[in-house]
């Protein structure tokens, strides 16, 4: 699951806007494939966002978040060289993480 996370940040007046795009099927377990078989549930359960290693945002979710989850949020501050990181865990205990330096 390497490189499933894309992080972008943009400094605005007084805050830093962060965009987070994750590649993940987010199957809720209720969809059927072409043969009519149920597609097993496969979704991200938790997303953790950290700034310089400190937890700043937690998102808990299930299969009602759209495929390839996309989140935007705003940091009140954000300095050059701050390290923003994101890591997710899904219901199969797969994990991935990425780090993004603010500029």
């Amino acid at each position: 699951m390497a490189n499933s996370i894309k992080i972008r940040s943009q400094r605005r007046g007084g805050y830093t806007e962060v965009k987070l795009l994750i590649t993940h099927p987010m199957e809720n377990g209720r969809n059927r494939d072409a043969n009519g078989e149920l597609i097993p549930a496969h979704f991200i359960e938790q997303l953790l966002v950290k700034l310089n290693g400190q937890l700043i945002l937690t998102a808990n979710m299930a299969g009602s978040i759209s495929k390839n989850p996309f989140f935007t949020f705003r940091l009140k501050a954000g300095n050059n060289g701050d390290r923003l990181s994101a890591e997710w865990t899904d219901n199969r205990q797969n994990k991935d993480s990425a780090e993004h330096p603010l500029d």
Binding site: L57, A59, M61, L75, K76
Partner: peptide, 28 residues
Amino acid sequence: FADKNPTPLLAEFELTPLIAPFLTARIK
């Protein structure tokens, strides 16, 4: 929440003082 979804809770967000009260997502 979505009151007609089979799984009505869509997401829980835990914010800290470093996060401004603004968030977007895409839901089903």
